[in-house]
Write a protein that binds this DNA or RNA. Sequence first.
DNA 1: CCGAATTGTAACGAATTCTTTCAGCGGGTC
DNA 2: GACCCGCTGAAAGAATTCGTTACAATTCGG
Lengths: 234, 234
Amino acid sequence: MSQPLVAILDDEPEIRNMLSDALGEAGFRTVSFGRATEFEAALRKTAPDVCLVDLGLPDRDGLTLVHRLALESGAAIIIISGRAQVQDRVTGLELGADDYIIKPFEPAEVVARVRARVRDARPAATGGASTAQFAGWTAHFDRYVLEDAEGRETSFSHAEGEVLRLFLEAPKRLINRTQMQEALGGAAGESFDRAMDVRISRLRTKLGEDPKNPKLIKTIYGAGYIFLGDVTWR
Amino acid sequence: MSQPLVAILDDEPEIRNMLSDALGEAGFRTVSFGRATEFEAALRKTAPDVCLVDLGLPDRDGLTLVHRLALESGAAIIIISGRAQVQDRVTGLELGADDYIIKPFEPAEVVARVRARVRDARPAATGGASTAQFAGWTAHFDRYVLEDAEGRETSFSHAEGEVLRLFLEAPKRLINRTQMQEALGGAAGESFDRAMDVRISRLRTKLGEDPKNPKLIKTIYGAGYIFLGDVTWR
DNA sequence: CCGAATTGTAACGAATTCTTTCAGCGGGTC
DNA sequence: GACCCGCTGAAAGAATTCGTTACAATTCGG
């Protein structure tokens, strides 16, 4: 994955530019939005690593937005706000924000805090392990073998392994399509990439999922996929 | 994994106690140290999830310590410091700290920030409550599953989930139409938005409501909707 | 009780996603 | 080299999801 992507949501253009410039110089890609609705629409297609959200937007309650983001996107969320009360900060953080920066702010600090978020988002808890257990299955990525609860082994292919690993590295988090395309070595996915769906479909079959009611790999219409099940890396 | 462990390093006993108390009430286990040397010795035995480190300790350069911690321990690191300059914060964060709190601080904010660190260290445990019980139903928002009194599961879609969550978050309170439109990510469409009604209708069906006499989702003509039923979030 | 405003819902259709089928590719075998 | 075979993506059609439309049902003021 190339440079981390930071999404900026603020209604004041100057602030958007200031942040965008500072982050750009620091080596981040950025996208900016002035309204929550645009922002959310874009979020369906893009998958930022960090979201900088200004509270007090004109067209929506910012905290509600933060809450939804926290639950539905895997991105780190940093609130930027003019409200300096402790209570504001606490509720913001409780609702799922990862950090809270008070206006007026120094761009340098914002950059540093964004870096801190990106840094610890990277090492997914899989410290070099090559075997994962979940829902009665054991996946051996070193041998390309999937073992069921009774110890019977099936082998899986490289493509299937990529998808499975992606899911197992981010369990219980929403993964949207672009995110997945990128991770799958996908050529900057044009929207007509059914390939990914097919991979997922085949993986589901291999995991014995009931198509009508999948328990492990769920589809969130218009948003992406989410892998349920507790994963333990060995 | 029981309660997360927070290690506190500060040379002032009152601060150690204040933090320890506040975090203890919030359900964390804590260990406190007054000197960096003790702290490091103890670190070999215990593996805290979060370290609260006061800069400006008598016996060692705090930033060096932070740097080593960041490299060697998997714990999240939060700096607490009286030095309020932007530059201090930036270097602290660059050196590997995950957050930087300025003295004097409110215990409540520290707790909230510790929670935020613990939360994203463990993607498995969704920070906020994600399961709600009401009228014999159990809604699992993390799995998009609705469970009836006999334990039978149906999955609900994203759109249905949004409506349901909205109701469950504000039970026994009137929710007017505009409020709902906004919360549902709806492009604040003008009055020709039957979409919302349809969503609610479909949700009612899924909840097995009697159209003539809904028990859970009531319509207040000309005002909005109200969700009856006692909700318990888990 | 009548009419207008408001709300419910069935039916349609657009967008999105799932799955089957088919063909190309590469590796291995004879 | 000819053949077989599993892997993978493309294409196509089926199936979902969900908003819109149209109309039925309900409520309220008079």
